[in-house]
Every structure is written in structure tokens, then in C-alpha cells.
């Protein structure tokens, strides 16, 4: 066994405090009874949790967020899965360009992308707000889908596919029967990462939302501009719980193999 290093231990603890401290503070303040954020709270109550459901907008925007994240995810998968497969399995002219093209939404600041999308696509073609949101979110999810799936594919030996084909399987059958089951963990990781990216997104959504249609993060942003009570802290706690539940679900499904093995 290695000797434990006290300096290293202190740094580790400090890092954890730095990362988890704010979350702990938010959690505690969300249970405060005062009508302003205070830490530590003088008395405890569940009032602000109740307030989330009584305030207009949170529930409906939550629904919009979920719908956009899931539908956008499907669209991104429909484009991203074949794209990742093509990019990792075939050599063709312009491959490098396409690779960078699909990753570019990660590199361009969200504000720029959102503004450009609004001005040159959404307004030009007169898309509805919902459609615009969906397009924007599909675009920001695409790089996650492609990157994570392509890296799983890179770890999957091509000769295994050739073996299936030589046994009589068509390319399509090979993809569904052999490739997909073997990149399952990467696929699920890609879906989850993309979902979280979309669900928490502000910078694109802010351009795509409009009268009547908004996402939860945008609604929260508007709320804190007007009120300073712990409702936002309470929502944050619920969102953390949602993320944790998602992680737990994936862990049960995969044994977290993707995150620990690769």
C-alpha cells in the first residue's frame, strides 16, 4: 500500500468543499422560512417547495424543457448515430472537415450560435417558437452524441462487423445486431450527456424562447430578476434530485460500466 500523503489529503478535502460547498448551501437555504435567501436560515419550512407548484410558469416550462430535451435528443440521435458511424468507419474526401463541422457547436460561444440561428434561420424561415427551440437544442446535443458514440465505435473492432457480414448478415442487420449492443453503454452515456446539456441550456434557449413558450432555466432566470426568495434554491434541489435519479437509473442499468471502464 502507498503511504497516505497529508498534503494531498488536505487538497482533496479542499477540492470537495469547493465543489460541493455551494450545493450544500443551496440545499440548506431552500428549507429556510424567510422570504429572502439567508444562510443559515433562522427557521425551517417546506414553504418554498410548495411555492414552486403554486407559481405560474415553472410547471409548464418544466414540461417544455423535458419535451424539447427528449425530442431534440431523438433528432440528434437520428443524425448523430449514422454520422458517428460513417466518420469512424469510412475514409472519404472531406472527412476532416465534417468532423470539425459536427463538433463546431461546442467551440462557438452559445450566444453567437443562438443569435445567428435566430437571425438567419428561425426568422428567415418563420419557424414557430417550438420548432426553433427544437432545432437549437438538436444542434447543441449533436456534438455530444457524435463524440461519445464515435469514441465507443473506435474501441469496437471492425473485424467483428466483418465477421457478421461474412456469416451472411446485411450491413443494416450487422449494425443493429452486432454494433448497437456493443456500444450500448456509450450510446446511453451520449443520450444522458446530451440530455443534461439541453436541459440546463440557457444561452441558446434565450434566443429561441418567446411569448408563451419557455424552458425551465429561462423561467428561473426571469424569476430571479424579480424575486429574491428561496424558490430558486428549492427548484435547484429538485433538479439535482432529478439528475441524481437519472444517474442512479443508469447505474442500475449499466453498473456505471461506461464511466468506470472507459
Amino acid at each position: 500500500m502507498k503511504q497516505s500523503n497529508p498534503v494531498l489529503a488536505i487538497f482533496t478535502i479542499l477540492t470537495f468543499i469547493f465543489l460541493l460547498g455551494p450545493l450544500a448551501i443551496i440545499m440548506v437555504t431552500s428549507f429556510g422560512a424567510d422570504s429572502y435567501l439567508s444562510f443559515p436560515p433562522k427557521s425551517l419550512s417546506l414553504h418554498w417547495y410548495q411555492h414552486i407548484f403554486e407559481t405560474e410558469g415553472f410547471l409548464s416550462t418544466f414540461k417544455t424543457s423535458i419535451i424539447v430535451s427528449i425530442a431534440g435528443n431523438l433528432i440528434a440521435l437520428l443524425i448523430g448515430l449514422p454520422a458517428a458511424y460513417g466518420l469512424s468507419r469510412y475514409q472519404f474526401w472531406g472527412k476532416k472537415f465534417l468532423n470539425s463541422f459536427f463538433i463546431s457547436p461546442l467551440l462557438i460561444p452559445g450566444i453567437v450560435l443562438g443569435f445567428a440561428l435566430l437571425k438567419y434561420v428561425i426568422v428567415n424561415y418563420q419557424f414557430s417558437i417550438y420548432t426553433g427551440l427544437l432545432i437549437g437544442h438538436s444542434i447543441i446535443m449533436l456534438p455530444f452524441i457524435i463524440r461519445v458514440i464515435a469514441s465507443s465505435l473506435a474501441n469496437f473492432d471492425f473485424s467483428i462487423e466483418e465477421a457478421a457480414i461474412s456469416l451472411g448478415a446485411s450491413r443494416l442487420a450487422t449494425f443493429f445486431k452486432i454494433v448497437l449492443p456493443n456500444i450500448r453503454s456509450g450510446l446511453i452515456a451520449a443520450i444522458v450527456l446530451a440530455f443534461l446539456e439541453s436541459f440546463n441550456n440557457v444561452d441558446i434557449s434565450i434566443f429561441m424562447t418567446g411569448p408563451g413558450v419557455s424552458t425551465l432555466p429561462i423561467q428561473m432566470l426571469q424569476y430571479v430578476q424579480n424575486y429574491f426568495d428561496p424558490t430558486i434554491a428549492a427548484i435547484s434541489v429538485l433538479m439535482m434530485l432529478l439528475t441524481a435519479a437519472l444517474m442512479y437509473f443508469i447505474e442500475r442499468l449499466l453498473g456505471l460500466s461506461y464511466f468506470t471502464k472507459n
Binding site: I160, E162, A163, A164, I165, S166, L167, I178, N182
Partner: peptide, 18 residues
């Protein structure tokens, strides 16, 4: 390939891991 009905044994076996 898939219409040729030939068997191919690969150097690295290429078994289906799942």
C-alpha cells in the same frame, strides 16, 4: 460478401463479445 456463403476465420477471432 454476405451472398458468397464463405466462412472467414480472423486472426483476432472477432467473436461477438455480447
Amino acid at each position: 460478401i454476405n451472398k458468397r456463403h464463405f466462412g472467414f476465420v480472423f486472426q483476432n477471432y472477432a467473436l461477438f463479445p455480447h
